[in-house]
Design a protein around this nucleic acid. Structure first.
Lengths: 332, 332
DNA sequence: ATGAAAGCGCTAACAC
DNA sequence: GTGTTAGCGCTTTCAT
């Protein structure tokens, strides 16, 4: 593949001149030289080698995003981040770890090895030590949605406690008293916050927390058969009159189960999901869900990242975004 | 950030020795040296610089995937490709062009600038010349799903003609005679193939093609209001008794419209989609859709890419995958 | 078993 | 306006 050296030889100019022109800093170079260089570039099918230029410059213009899963929520977030940060000349690359600690860590390492300018991380639960080490490595990064207690780092997240609280409170105000949910077998604080919000809303409304209405399931995978059985038990044995799905990974098989069991929604059983989805308005009855302030999350990520890259950030930032609005539909 | 030079200084060994050990080729290096190097690596928080090593080696281990849109179909495909090609030591990076020619071309350029080992491309319609140039640049790549007539390149795709043919034939066998669809305003051959399959199935069953039942809409964006109006006209003016959605971008607002218009599905109007979606079985009535041989597509992509990278491919390959199976549900 | 040195393609400080 | 040169961090050939 052609190099600037080839262009220099072809045009009879020096490497420097070629480099200056190719980088658009050709103000002080003669029109004649510029023309010849542009011509040679086309003819030789020149493609700049970012490995070389980034190595030399000591940095890339890439922002690496590692998310736990490539679901629509994170894809959308990445697109918003991309849109915002493109103005500053950065490109965005997104990878998904499938909730695997090993993959997540490997992906972070890969980004570092490629000397990305910064990272946005929605990490898996086992990454605490890696995040601590990231700080030592002085690499600009922002955690998103997920964080670790006792670890100082920039973090941007939803108010998971408040969102869950509001959701459950909403159901109670609608007259529901036996609100079921799934408890996830994870150490991730964002999930614990949601569970705490659920419990707090019950308590503030004088309803006792009932463990039978919050059975534990796997966070990283949804076993449809297991979920089906649990829902049947919640409703038929423990009299659940509403289900609050904290994740869509469980909501999809869950809603499928509810429909197959032919419970009357919302009369017998109300449904409310933490995250919205395009299809929730298509389903009959349509599903009530919360909608997240993704734009603000993205904007804040970009702000923090840019300050961190420029070295303007004196101390780490923690931003929590207000509880989410409810898209009320037929299921509640 | 620490370099191998730092490790060399710290351990008192040479750069060469450190490099050999860090690359796991330390068979001929003393245990003692290896131990000291591993230790220094931890203490100094060393991270290899891929920019430098790739520059030196002349290649990266990255496979770049550019897709027209980050929807579930391509995400899934990318995951399958990743799984298959990881065994050969490659990593996968996926980006979406949002059906924009400029972004698509810029993303390909970026990958080339980073000297990816190969690319998988589902390009936008204006990229014909760029693909021609890619061939000249001798970069290993495989086109997927989308291709250009008259351009020699590796391509792996669904049998779009056959799939559409089978879908429409299926509807006819079910007794439908006035099958509507949307015609897309794009030059992409994969879409034209689908349209041709639609027409051929009608013809083979003795049904005349009716332009009123195949109005033209934008390929890259779905205007819900426009689609709503068109469906109303198809059904109420031109008596459509079935709709074949060739893309899910149109299917989502389309199905929404059908439900809102309260047509009886499938009695009055049958629905069939080219691509499946997790939610199609949740919707009432559930939506019949085709399912694509994604595993095979991914596997073939990987095979071709690996051969191309190794330089084993004598001539370009074109692989068309058999018509897709139908997931029959309540909407037909 | 270990080291010296060249060079991958590029940028930038400096010289003319 | 244009050229010379050093060096980014690494791998690899060739010595020792």
């Amino acid at each position: 593949m052609a190099t600037i050296k080839d262009i220099a030889q072809y045009t009879g100019l020096s490497i420097t001149t070629v480099s200056i022109v190719l980088n658009g800093k050709g103000a002080r170079i003669s029109k004649e030289a510029i023309k010849r260089i542009e011509e040679a570039k086309k003819i030789l099918n020149y493609e700049p080698n970012m490995l070389a230029s980034s190595l030399r410059k000591g940095s890339t213009n890439i922002i690496g995003i590692v998310v736990s899963d490539l679901h629509p929520y994170f894809i959308r977030l990445a697109q918003l981040i991309e849109r915002d940060i493109a103005q500053y000349g950065y490109q965005v690359l997104i990878v998904g770890s499938d909730e695997s600690d090993e993959k997540c860590e490997a992906m972070i390492d890969n980004f570092i090895n490629f000397r990305v300018a910064g990272m946005v991380l929605a990490v898996t639960s086992g990454l605490k030590q890696r995040i601590v080490r990231l700080n030592k490595q002085r690499i600009p990064f922002v955690m998103i949605d997920r964080y670790f207690k006792g670890v100082t780092a920039n973090v941007v997240l939803l108010d998971n406690f408040r969102s869950a609280y509001n959701a459950v409170d909403f159901l109670i105000k609608k007259g529901r008293t036996r609100i079921a949910t799934f408890h996830y077998d994870t150490q991730m604080h964002h999930m614990q916050d949601r569970m705490d919000g659920y419990k707090a809303a019950l308590k503030d409304n004088g309803i006792r927390f009932n463990k039978k209405l919050a059975p534990t399931i796997s966070f990283s995978e949804a076993n449809a058969i297991e979920i089906n059985g649990m829902i049947k038990e919640m409703v038929e044995v423990y009299g659940a009159d509403a289900i609050f799905f904290q994740t869509n990974r469980a909501a999809l098989p869950g809603i499928d189960a509810i429909f197959n069991l032919h419970y009357k929604v919302p009369e017998q059983l109300a449904i409310l999901c933490f995250h919205d989805n395009d299809f929730f308005k298509l389903v009959k009855p349509s599903i009530t869900a919360q909608c997240q302030p993704l734009e603000e999350l993205a904007k804040e990520c970009v702000n923090i990242l840019l300050s961190e890259i420029k070295g303007e950030l004196k101390s780490k930032v923690r931003r929590v975004f207000p509880a989410t609005i409810l898209n009320e539909r037929d299921s509640t």
